[in-house]
């Protein structure tokens, strides 16, 4: 293995670790919400600093590799992709953090009815699923898997679009839980962004492996470029 190869391998490992960390952040934020576990929420807030330091570390490594090795072709695309995936992942981390911040503000345990009606928990599961998918796609350099993200994201969009009528209905019937309802809506808005970040990550993976640029293409076009 050449020197550059070993550096790239290290970078890949670091990014996968960061994926893992962000996934667990999402999972923990979900758990903290269900049980209104503020300790767990606090843990997520603390761990967010680790996500940030991963981001800085990976940024610096990319900068060094670019400066020292002048990579070209697939190596260059890999590095550019890693740079962008890195910042997308960091944003997903931020989303988990802000969910937990809402949890910290909750006075009462969220009502099961609300969570179910708004499909918030389902949303958590789907976003975790999507993030897991892009992680696997990155790990195994699987563009087919990466493309499946575009379909999965539809679910999140759908939940998000329907959310505000559902929440509005809920508020009409539960005047005492207005705050909680608004938090729930905000969380849904946030989690919808996870899907968008993962779509960006998927695009970067496809760019790195196939050298195809999928940005700003419609869903249809993305599927066609296979």
């Amino acid at each position: 293995m050449t020197h550059l190869d070993s550096e790239l391998k290290q970078l890949r490992t670091d990014l996968l670790d960061m994926f893992e960390l962000v996934l667990s952040q999402l999972d923990k934020s979900k758990q903290s919400l269900i049980n209104l576990d503020k300790d767990l929420a606090r843990e997520v807030l603390v761990n967010e600093k680790r996500v940030n330091s991963y981001e800085l570390q990976i940024d610096r490594d990319c900068e060094n590799i670019l400066a020292l090795f002048n990579p070209v072709a697939v190596d260059l695309r890999f590095l550019l992709a890693v740079l962008k995936i890195n910042s997308n992942l960091e944003r997903v981390g931020d989303i988990a953090e802000s969910v937990c911040q809402f949890v910290m503000n909750f006075k009462l345990e969220p009502e099961k009815k609300l969570l179910e009606a708004s499909r918030l928990l389902e949303m958590f599961d789907v976003s975790k699923e999507i993030l897991k998918t892009v992680k696997d796609a990155f790990e195994h350099e699987d563009t087919k898997l990466a493309r499946s993200v575009f379909t999965q994201d539809e679910t999140l969009d759908e939940i998000n679009i329907n959310a505000h009528t559902i929440i509005a209905d809920y508020i009409l019937n539960n005047n005492d839980r207005i705050n909680q309802s608004l938090y729930t809506l905000s969380m849904i808005r946030k989690l919808e962004r996870v899907g968008d970040q993962c779509k960006n990550i998927a695009e970067e993976i496809i760019f790195y492996i196939e050298a195809k640029v999928l940005k700003h293409k419609s869903f249809q076009q993305k599927q066609e470029t296979k």
């Binding site: 020197h3 550059l4 400066a67 020292l68 090795f69 002048n70």
Partner: peptide, 8 residues
Amino acid sequence: NMQQAGRI
């Protein structure tokens, strides 16, 4: 060769 210095 600057790149060489960087690489090694």
